[in-house]
Write a protein that binds this DNA or RNA. Structure first.
Lengths: 97, 97
DNA sequence: TTACAATGTCATCGAACGGTGACAAATGGA
DNA sequence: TCCATTTGTCACCGTTCGATGACATTGTAA
């Protein structure tokens, strides 16, 4: 499954927590955060700290990985497969602003 | 590649930024954050906001995905493949604390 | 070396963090 | 239904966030 938003992340965490037969308090203790924090994160808290998120996923045995470039049609910020000469020239132009 | 720590994340971001031929200021503008924030994140800032991290990865065309259970030997918090009856019973026991 | 771009670092500031303690609402079993 | 567990939500508080502006350091091409 692919993760693009904090809501995706919250859904994953809630799903895995339930599959592990843990309540929010159990998971909170395992991770070392408050029960309220787990609750908010599962609902998609946008400003949660990345390291706590990583600890939470780790506690649930969830593996995050990165693929190569995003396939063209899949994401909104598709990457050009070839070198973008124009942008390189643009970057090389002297007055950046 | 697998991501387990904020340092992994920072390394990915720096690597992809350079491959995209962007400097920190370019990426910052694309994501909508300050150049300093990009700088700190690339060095493994542990308390960065998850939503900004996701926006950054998206801007770089980096796809994050989740696999099933972590393979036994790979991670420190390995998940039992079978149902853990003991922990279920423990959870079911009346006085939680 | 000189000069400029890129990166690293600092202080300041308003805003939001996460923890705690408490209570209400929802859920589920007897 | 009753009752306990779980989840959702609130106010308070000390800490840290990320933006800004400035300056130092490093990298690199002329």
């Amino acid at each position: 499954m692919q993760i693009r938003t904090v809501k995706d992340l919250g859904a994953i965490i809630r799903d895995r927590r339930k599959k592990a037969d843990l309540d929010q308090a159990d998971l909170a203790q395992k991770v070392g955060v408050s029960r309220q924090w787990i609750n908010e994160v599962e609902k998609g808290k946008p400003r949660a700290e990345i390291s706590l998120i990583l600890k939470t996923l780790d506690a649930l045995g969830v593996v995050i990985n990165i693929d190569g470039e995003r396939p063209d049609k899949t994401g909104k910020a598709a990457q050009p497969k070839t070198v973008d000469i124009d942008s390189i020239i643009e970057n090389a132009r002297r007055p950046k602003q």
